[in-house]
């Protein structure tokens, strides 16, 4: 039984005003059902990152509506938004965005701490998440002591620790070598197989090939939205 997780309607995101106005999103509508694995592709400047930030409740729309699990995001206040960001969404950035000079496990524990989860349970869940991404032996390392692939896996563990239903990844493999990319994509397959909705932004075809549905964007518009034939079963 699936339901609509992401429902973006007539989304417009405008930067600047008047003559110099730039439309990062020009009337985009998109629906994503629970359990889907979606890749959003497009050249830089196509608006895919903007769309991702909107979906992750990190940015707001100039006009249009965004329903996450049936709830309109723009009507939420600051506190409600922080709960949505913390519990419903796991966000993975291209540049990892780990807190500097803080150990891997402390980074993974952080979103749990903000949810008010007690130290003992936090530690247990963070350890488990790090085990899933294969970094159980690197828990006490700070970001600078980890490779790019390892840092990204810590970021994935951080996103997973809160057990979100939606995993958003903005060019997660952009800064990784091919081995790390492969490992990370395997991880995403696993996460999706467990029933979580995964949305990945990428401009690499082999990354997009892992997804079940591929959306292509250009100039702030969706130009194609199709089922990935290789994955369709």
């Amino acid at each position: 039984m699936t339901h609509t997780v992401i429902d973006v309607r007539n989304a417009v995101k405008q930067y600047g005003a008047g003559q110099s106005a730039i439309f990062a999103l020009a009337d985009v509508s998109i629906q994503i059902e629970s359990g889907e694995y979606v890749a959003i592709m497009g050249p830089s400047g196509s608006g895919k990152s903007t769309l991702m930030n909107i979906m992750g409740a990190l940015d707001n729309l100039t006009s249009g509506e965004y329903f996450l699990d049936g709830i309109e995001i723009s009507s939420m206040d600051e506190d409600a938004l922080s709960i949505v960001r913390g519990r419903k969404i796991g966000f993975i950035f291209q540049s990892f965005n780990l807190i500097p000079r803080t150990t891997a496990i402390a980074n993974v524990e952080l979103p749990l701490a903000y949810q008010g989860i007690k130290s003992a349970e936090r530690k247990m869940r963070a350890t488990k998440a790090l085990e899933v991404v294969g970094l159980a032996d690197r828990m006490d390392h700070e970001p600078t002591e980890l490779s790019g692939g390892q840092q990204q896996r810590v970021a994935v563990a951080r996103a997973l620790a809160t057990r979100p239903s939606l995993l958003l990844a903005d060019e997660p493999t952009g800064a990784l070598d091919s081995k790390s990319t492969h490992d990370l994509l395997d991880l995403f397959d696993q996460i999706n197989a467990a029933g979580r909705t995964v949305v990945v932004i990428t401009h690499e075809n082999d990354v997009a090939d892992r997804a079940k549905r591929i959306i292509r964007m250009r100039d702030g518009k969706i130009i194609s939205d199709e089922i990935n034939a290789k994955k369709a079963s």
């Binding site: 992750g56 990190l58 600051e78 506190d79 922080s82 709960i83 949505v84 960001r85 913390g86 519990r87 966000f91 950035f93 965005n97 780990l98 807190i99 500097p100 952080l110 979103p111 903000y114 949810q115 951080r158 809160t162």
Partner: peptide, 16 residues
């Protein structure tokens, strides 16, 4: 500020 952004993105309430 960037760190504040990360913290907010992973669900830190403003008051904390």
């Amino acid at each position: 500020t960037r760190e504040i952004g990360i913290r907010k993105a992973i669900g830190a309430p403003k008051r904390i």
